[in-house]
Design a protein around this nucleic acid. Structure first.
Lengths: 202, 202
DNA sequence: CCGGAGTGACACCGGTCGGTATCGTTGTCA
DNA sequence: TGACAACGATACCGACCGGTGTCACTCCGG
């Protein structure tokens, strides 16, 4: 993961400020995901992270901003793992299978609790909340990437098929533990392959 | 809907008590769904419904119990509409298409905000919360019903295919407005048909 | 080794939360 | 019609919420 030569990693100096910001955000993210945003108070983040409330509020003006940063962070992490999942395969079909395997494994992890973007959207009904924009962007991006893969796979209706596969993935995210008993990765790969093959049929 | 001769509808006398209970629950359900459970205070339910707080707490000992009743109500309503959606068709394939059309229409309604069971699960991380049990039962029931339809459709792997279609449906629930631009019902029907046809393939 | 930006600890703010107690009023059913 | 259960209104409770102000200390670059 960090062994490959990247284009840039210029962080020999995480300042004290950056470090406490990171600790606060990491802790908040963990708690928000595990317990729900509204269920976690700022006090709890302070106690768990060891970062003073004053300091947190210097880095994040409001709790909403912290939520925003949380989703941004999850988004980045998600695409990083997505890239890793497709990197092994050379053909488009293999890349989609790689994605299915990764998602299948991810949603069956011990404390998996669904897609953070979706969870936050469920908690915050106001669509103008900044966090909601991140969630929308995240899902749009997923469809965009899937459509590219569909095109590469020679799919006659890439947009449509990409949306179908996106539904499948989102379904897997919300279903999580209910997939126990099934080999989730294989189930997803079979369904996705089937959808790709049937693209353009009527 | 209420026009068919049911086995029992013995409600010529909704007592005053039953009426205020119903008003409170209906209002709470509407608010919970539209705004999120934690975002709605008991005071707000009182003001919106016109039912006194004392009365609400006589019918529902805690807010959690009200949430429970909300999900129970949504569950019942969901299966009622499910039955209606499959009632028109005689062959299993047609019933599944009917479900897809219903879901496609449902998720594109103006203020659609996802599956209530999933939303509540996102807000309440504690899996022993009574509302969580209702949500689990709801999703199990969906898989059970889909599996029956798959068997009737002559599907060689009904359990597996039912789960795939369930993922598709759950994906549609969370995607809601993002399906705009697609003909959601047709998209779902195409995908479901494809999954049925491919059942048992490798 | 010194100066200042950034830190942690803590007290505190108004507001809102879920839930209770009291009490006068109203609907219902014998 | 009378009596009682259930109602609505209101005031109130302790707990906790997100957010601020103060201040002594500590780390880090120059």
């Amino acid at each position: 993961m960090s062994s490959m030569p990247e284009t840039s990693q210029p962080q020999p100096k995480p300042t004290r400020s950056a470090r406490s910001r990171e600790r606060a955000l990491a802790t908040a993210s963990r708690l928000f995901y595990a317990l729900g945003v509204r269920a976690v108070g700022m006090e709890q983040i302070v106690e768990t992270s060891g970062v003073a409330k004053t300091t947190i509020y210097r880095h994040f003006p409001t709790k909403d901003a912290l939520v925003e940063a949380f989703l941004e962070r999850e988004d980045a992490e998600f695409w990083s793992q997505w890239e890793a999942a497709i990197s092994a395969a050379s053909d488009p079909h293999g890349r989609i299978v790689g994605l299915c395997a990764w998602i299948g494994e991810r949603v069956q992890r011990p404390r998996y609790r669904g897609c953070p973007q979706v969870n936050v959207a469920a908690e915050f009904a106001n669509e103008t909340h900044p966090a909601r924009a991140i969630a929308r962007r995240h899902k749009t991006e997923m469809h965009r990437r899937l459509a590219i893969l569909c095109v590469e796979a020679g799919c006659p209706e890439p947009d449509l098929t990409a949306m179908q596969i996106a539904l499948l993935f989102d379904g897997a995210f919300v279903s999580g533990p209910r997939l126990a008993g099934f080999e989730a990765g294989a189930l997803l790969a079979h369904a996705a392959g089937c959808l790709l093959r049937c693209s353009g049929d009527r």
